[in-house]
């Protein structure tokens, strides 16, 4: 079984996100290890992009901080190498298509395999355009994580049937960011997904509180939290480690 598969085995998975290089590559390593200590089952690492069109303000700002610290796709791979020396936790990239495409698809996925990345989430890569990357990613054993949105409707089955790793269910309209209320009927989306695949489902976009996580985890296999963690990075900068640990622990304990 793949590392991603194991993360969902016999438990609800907590998935935490940090933007690589915010506030530095060294600190990202520390924050990732704190998330693991707090109980995170899978880590998403953002490769910063100049124009993250699916992100809200919190993660946009983290991207700017990381890029202004001269973070590059290469230094993010260095980060993965260092993290892999310490843990077996599944690592999934989150980035936009252009940094991947510009790096060179073959070179990018080769580096993913060499360094120990398990999957990648690309918000601006819909089902229709996946073909361009799919074979290369598969050849290197990297899962391209499929996203399903509240507007997907008749597309859910098609996307889910083709999914590997896990299915990322977007719980809210709009962009990433903390929300007080999740209005989408996530459960019925997950029911449709479950009718066509055994690939685990994880829900993200807008989740920040233990109460939300408890509720979502009743029907999803995993809970994804990005902005709430990145907010701590923004607020406490180099000193965010302890805050991140405590937050992740409280979230993991709630699911």
């Amino acid at each position: 079984m793949s590392r991603i598969g194991k993360a969902f085995e016999n438990r609800k998975a907590f998935i935490g996100f940090v933007t690589g290089g915010d506030p530095s590559i060294e600190k990202s390593e520390e924050f990732i290890m704190e998330m693991v200590r707090g109980g995170a089952d899978l880590i998403e690492i953002g490769i910063p992009f100049s124009d993250p069109t699916a992100e809200g303000v919190v993660i946009q700002e983290a991207n700017i901080r990381a890029l202004s610290n001269r973070t590059t796709t290469d230094t993010i791979f260095d980060l993965v190498v260092n993290v892999r020396k310490k843990t077996d936790v599944p690592l999934v990239f989150l980035t936009y298509l252009n940094p991947v495409f510009t790096y060179g698809l073959e070179k990018f996925f080769t580096r993913c395999e060499e360094t120990g990345v398990d999957g990648i989430i690309i918000p601006d890569l819909p089902y229709e355009e996946k073909g361009e990357l799919a074979d290369i990613a598969t050849n290197h054993g990297i899962d391209i994580i499929s996203l399903i949105a509240p507007t997907s409707e008749d597309r859910i089955k098609k996307i889910a049937s083709d999914a590997t790793g896990f299915v990322y269910v977007v719980s809210s309209m709009g962009v990433t960011g903390v929300r007080s209320e999740i209005k989408t009927d996530v459960k019925s989306i997950i029911d449709v997904v479950k009718s066509v695949t055994n690939v685990p489902t994880a829900v993200g976009f807008g989740i920040s509180t233990p109460e939300q996580a408890t509720e979502i985890s009743q029907y999803a296999d995993g809970v994804i939290v990005g902005s709430a963690i990145v907010k701590l990075c923004g607020e406490y900068g180099e000193n965010a480690a302890q805050h991140i640990y405590e937050y992740v622990k409280s979230m993991k304990d709630s699911i």
Partner: peptide, 12 residues
Amino acid sequence: GGQYIPEILMNE
């Protein structure tokens, strides 16, 4: 060309 946009906008 192509359609490189988030899933949330695909049906639209």
